[in-house]
């Protein structure tokens, strides 16, 4: 009898130990995330996500607009925000018309979304920052700064200025200038200034 037990032990002892060791190792690994230790998958660009910015004022507003706009454009182009960013960064030639149109539409949608959720700041909240960087006549600048916020907000609506700015912007040139912050700022400033003028003119026309 003990001989039989010894025979069984010889035949199955080591295989049983091996199976236990392998199963235990793999089970422990799987329960700790083995098999899913992979790079982050890009989120679906068509699923709305909350966008925050550490920056305040115009920089913060611009960043949030760009991030939402990028999501919207990626959704239109049926790709991810990350893949579109990399495509635009790597592209040696001009972006395609499809990409430019998607980006413009994306930015416009971003303005609409921010207006709808109330996260778009009023014009009065941005005016001081705009005046700091604008090259205006000193007297005119002082007059504008003296205006009450309610007057500024009645005269200018942020979403209108932004929509006009986006319509005016040369997206291709903007993408070309990504490596040159001063050229980029100059181009955006020019478009914003023009948009403010157009918006004021339109407001005056409405009043008249």
């Amino acid at each position: 009898m003990s001989g039989q037990v010894s025979q069984v032990r010889r035949w199955i002892g080591l295989p049983v130990v091996a199976v236990v060791l392998v199963v235990a190792t793999i089970t422990v690994q799987l329960t700790h995330g083995g098999g899913t230790y992979e790079p982050l998958r890009p989120a679906d660009a068509c699923v709305e996500r909350s966008v925050t910015s550490r920056a305040t004022g115009i920089d913060g507003l611009t960043e949030r607009l760009v991030l939402i706009g990028l999501d919207e454009a990626a959704c239109t182009l049926r790709t991810s925000r990350e893949a579109l960013t990399l495509q635009l960064a790597r592209q040696s030639g001009d972006p395609t018309t499809k990409q430019v149109d998607a980006l413009r539409e994306g930015l416009l949608s971003a303005v609409a979304r921010m207006k709808a959720d109330g996260s778009l700041p009023k014009a009065s909240a941005l005016v001081d920052e705009v005046l700091d960087s604008a090259d205006l006549n000193g007297l005119l600048e002082r007059i504008i700064r003296a205006l009450p916020d309610s007057v500024i907000d009645r005269a200018l609506s942020t979403d209108d200025v932004l929509v006009r700015t986006i319509d005016d912007l040369d997206v291709r040139a903007l993408l070309d200038d990504l490596d040159d912050p001063s050229a980029l700022d100059g181009r955006v400033e020019k478009a914003v200034t023009q948009a403010v003028k157009d918006s004021l003119e339109a407001r005056l026309r409405d009043l008249v």
């Binding site: 991030l67 960013t85 990399l86």
Partner: peptide, 19 residues
């Protein structure tokens, strides 16, 4: 490509100033 996309996602969402 997946690694670069993951890197891009983290940079975009990083709590840093845009510059």
């Amino acid at each position: 490509e997946p690694a670069q996309q993951a890197v891009t996602a983290l940079v975009i969402d990083a709590p840093l100033d845009p510059q």
